[in-house]
Design a protein around this nucleic acid. Structure first.
Lengths: 194, 194
DNA sequence: TCGAACATGTAAAAGGTTACATGATTAC
DNA sequence: GTAATCATGTAACCTTTTACATGTTCGA
């Protein structure tokens, strides 16, 4: 799923400027995708070239004039096709989990710090999401994805409270001698083999 | 966090070939990162040029000779620094959530199909993870990340069972006339503004 | 004998981020 | 007056994916 398709999707909700679309990526979409101006503006220009959107400058006095983008019939069709054809994939890139996976290379203090910070991140995001999920203006699709994010952050909080202490303790019981030189993975380990 | 750092991390677990590292990305690491040969082999060559790893061809008769990679002292130091300096970020890219967010553009049948498939994905991954999480050969870091994945997939299953029907029903109660031309988001919506 | 697993790599292209560049307006 | 917000864009760089290319060995 590329930024072009996401922009078409955003425009299916109503005419918007590149700036507006960026806000959407920082807001509702941020829980499952992200994009910056550097990809949004080129995407919009390309979509215009392909005839999938119209761009017209809105000269409302005062403020800098935004270029409002509007889905054409062809754009609508292309969007539907893209969404229907997609076999939904998911990719998670979590540096937190990378760090904990390699936690044998971290100091106790650094590990504890990382765990606390991760907890705070989930906690504050969760509080925000819970405060907005029941607002009546959400479309069903929006509310669904907010619920998904809430479920995920709640689960991560519970997991951190349950397994965080275990991770810290398991390190203390290890011989401090062989730091970073643990034996190689057994080649028949399911995690290696699969 | 780039593939080079991940490769260094993999090698902190013991000497491995590029092929072995790929298996790690398909296995234990797959729950929070991914990489293909096209990025792993160039990364390894670059790490060798930088003196962070040694590569030597293992001539064990028969099989094609793997090039075993070994962390140098400099590599170990670089890895520790990279892991300590990282301020852990997380990014999720879920086409499933993109599709549900824009579900006003999908047919009822397609939406139902997507929900069922997503449920199956989480269900089968969860079953696998639960079958291996208690194996004694896991390092604490490995077990921690497996628990994290289990927590996430369980939460998603519960969420799908709870909110999936709601999403389908909310569509049926909508006027079928204005498909795809829902009113623009209120500009004061928290999801837009934030 | 045939497919799966082992094993390494390249080249082109796609895709995106980062940093830079600019400037008006509004609210405090 | 000054910081935040509105508003658009480019260029260089980085990273990664995709598709291709090749060949061996083991087990059924």
């Amino acid at each position: 799923m590329n930024v072009k398709t996401l922009c078409l999707g955003a425009l299916s909700l109503g005419d918007q400027s590149g700036y507006d679309i960026k806000k959407l990526f920082e807001g509702a979409l941020s829980h499952f995708h992200y994009a910056t101006y550097g990809s949004i503006y080129p995407a919009l220009r390309q979509l215009e070239r392909e005839g999938l959107i119209d761009i017209r400058t809105a000269h409302r006095g005062g403020r800098p004039a935004p270029k409002m983008c509007h889905l054409t019939a062809a754009g609508h069709k292309a969007l539907r096709q893209a969404l229907t054809a997609a076999s939904p994939t998911e990719q998670l890139r979590s540096e937190f989990l990378v760090l904990t996976y390699f936690s044998h290379l971290l100091s106790d203090e650094r590990l504890a710090e990382i765990l606390v910070e991760e907890r705070e991140r989930h906690s504050s995001t969760l509080a925000y999401l819970e405060s907005i999920v029941d607002l009546p203006e959400h479309r069903p699709g929006t509310r669904f994805t907010v619920h998904a994010a809430i479920a995920r952050h709640r689960a991560m909080l519970a997991f951190l409270d349950e397994q965080g202490p275990t991770l810290c303790q398991s390190r203390r019981s290890l011989d401090p001698e062989h730091e970073g030189t643990l034996p190689p993975l057994a080649s028949n380990s399911p995690l290696v083999a699969r």
